[in-house]
């Protein structure tokens, strides 16, 4: 379902970008990176609005704790839909689906949510590696393999 998955660090620098799909002139690795990059804008916008709404309604702090990490559809283009997810440590997970492919167009929100949750779990596993320095790019081959299969399994 997904054509691209990205893990973006606290400082908005990419920690991991993985994509599948055949490279065509319009749909290639680089173009997906642009998509992910611009998605950060929408993502930050979403975060700031949730934050302000939370501070405004300081009474129900319980909602802050239960804040859904899944941010839903960030924005869409003619060909792609971009979904976002933010961990409590401000690691951003971005998932890009292609609306032109038959499976991508028919995707449900719940599926994306599960996929991103699984990606979060995979990410947590990957950075548990004691040799991984937080803030560095994720180079783990295992993580790469798992993420690729995550993208494919849902196709």
């Amino acid at each position: 379902m997904a054509v691209c998955v990205a893990v973006i660090g606290k400082d908005n620098s990419p920690l991991y970008i993985g994509g599948i799909g055949n490279d065509t002139s319009t749909d290639n690795e680089l173009s997906r990176q642009w998509l992910v990059h611009t998605a950060l804008d929408a993502l930050e916008e979403r975060l700031s609005t949730t934050n302000t709404s939370n501070t405004n309604s300081s009474a129900n702090t319980a909602r802050t704790d239960l804040r859904d990490l899944y941010l839903g559809l960030l924005y869409s283009t003619d060909t792609h839909k971009i979904y976002g997810y933010v961990t409590n440590t401000r690691i951003k997970l971005v998932l890009v689906t292609s609306s032109t492919s038959p499976s991508g167009s028919n995707i449900r929100d719940a599926e994306v949510r599960t996929a991103l949750r699984r990606l979060h779990a995979l990410y947590a596993d990957a950075i548990c590696n004691p040799f991984h320095l937080p803030g560095d790019q994720i180079t783990s081959q295992k993580f790469d393999k798992q993420v690729k299969s995550l993208m494919l399994n849902n196709v």
Partner: peptide, 13 residues
Amino acid sequence: SYEEQGWKDLAAQ
């Protein structure tokens, strides 16, 4: 802006 935030592929492009 790409350099600042470490988007090396985009910067290279």
